[in-house]
Design a binder for these strands. Structure first.
Lengths: 210, 210
DNA sequence: GAGGCTAATGACAGCCACTGACAATTGACA
DNA sequence: TGTCAATTGTCAGTGGCTGTCATTAGCCTC
């Protein structure tokens, strides 16, 4: 790796960390791009040469995680039923995610930024759009696994929509609680996914949720 | 109603229609607030006194529709199972929606704007966030119907997430196709909702989708 | 290791969404 | 009709973001 390349990487990482730190402490709307650039001592123009917008810094880490989940689903054995493949892909990619993220920023900082994302309307909107795009990708992979046409058969998108909905609920609970651990997250997710069947059954009063 | 009030309403409606017309023809990003204000011959500042932002004009009609759906769900008989109540609330409020919208802008214009929403990243993001908020409301109503605590029992949010996912898929199909009719939309929705059970069953190869 | 090449940066000007402040106008009501 | 309050226009300013151009800094060759 060049001196030039190394320098670029260092600048990008510095900008990223400065941005996330500022978002987490001061809030997203309250930090200007000038603040971020000033914290790294580069011009505002340079910031925009590394990131397409202020938003992109906030979603740099989540993007990493998504990439890994998609990869995990791609390598799931074909024997698994769709919902099961999705569940395992997510549960089993968390270790890799944790590792990759920690190389960039402390997980704890990422948690704090995630809370900011959930509580900032503009960021929440962007987050949901990104999730929708991810779901589209997953639906395509599922369809391929089952030898179906995503646009002709509604079922791939439906399972993924359901799955995505459950994941989003657990993500929110994770960020709201104070258990950062992977195991805690894993447990939460399995619990919720196990509720899907009963939730659709209908007669909720007969068998109250545990 | 006052002369003053009538005048205000007229200005607001004019701004709304001008904005939607411009969005539909020229595109969202390509029309500036100045354009909209100029089309109605008021100052830019006045536009911002009627709408909190450019976005708000694009979602004025959808907001109307959401209000009616929430109301419809609230008045569903308690005997219905959650998913059924949701389905009927949506299907049976479309007539009211159609009527209310047409009083404001032509449905056909709304369709064109909806396509713009789906294809403009910033608007799509906002749309998804609004949908999430709506789902939260619906989950609360469902929980109340069933005498549950939304935060303690995951099932209300899960059914609503599933339902919302299906609705979003049908909305996209509706806007992509060329059948604007209510009946077409109704049929599409029922078809997709009927797929939910089979989609979760798992063995998709045994019983291919109709 | 001097010089040329190219990539990275900074400085500047400008667009657009949006806001605050103040003055001018216009409907309401006695 | 005159007074009061609501509505509007004007102006100035902030923040995100982009294009342009000159300057700097690493790279590569002779």
């Amino acid at each position: 790796m060049n001196l030039r390349e190394r320098k670029k990487r260092r600048t990008r990482d510095a900008l990223l960390r400065a941005a996330l730190e500022l978002f987490a402490t001061r809030g997203y709307e309250e930090t200007t791009v000038d603040d971020i650039a000033a914290a790294v001592d580069v011009s505002q123009r340079t910031f925009f040469r590394y990131f397409a917008g202020k938003e992109e810094t906030a979603f740099f880490v989540p993007r990493l995680a998504e990439t890994l989940v998609v990869e995990a689903l791609r390598t799931r054995p074909p024997g698994e039923v769709p919902l099961e493949a999705l569940r395992r892909a997510v549960l089993e990619s968390w270790d890799a995610i944790n590792e990759a993220v920690e190389e960039l920023v402390p997980i704890e900082l990422h948690l704090r930024v995630y809370r900011v994302i959930e509580s900032t309307p503009a960021l929440l909107a962007a987050h949901l759009r990104r999730s929708a795009e991810l779901e589209e990708q997953l639906a395509c992979i599922i369809a391929e696994r089952e030898g179906l046409d995503v646009n002709a058969d509604p079922r791939p998108r439906i399972v993924v929509a359901l799955f995505g909905g459950v994941i989003r609920v657990t993500e929110r609970l994770w960020s709201a609680g104070d258990d950062i651990s992977i195991d805690g997250m894993r447990e939460l997710t399995t619990t919720y996914l196990d509720q899907v069947g009963p939730a659709l059954a209908g007669n909720w009063h007969a068998e109250p949720s545990p």
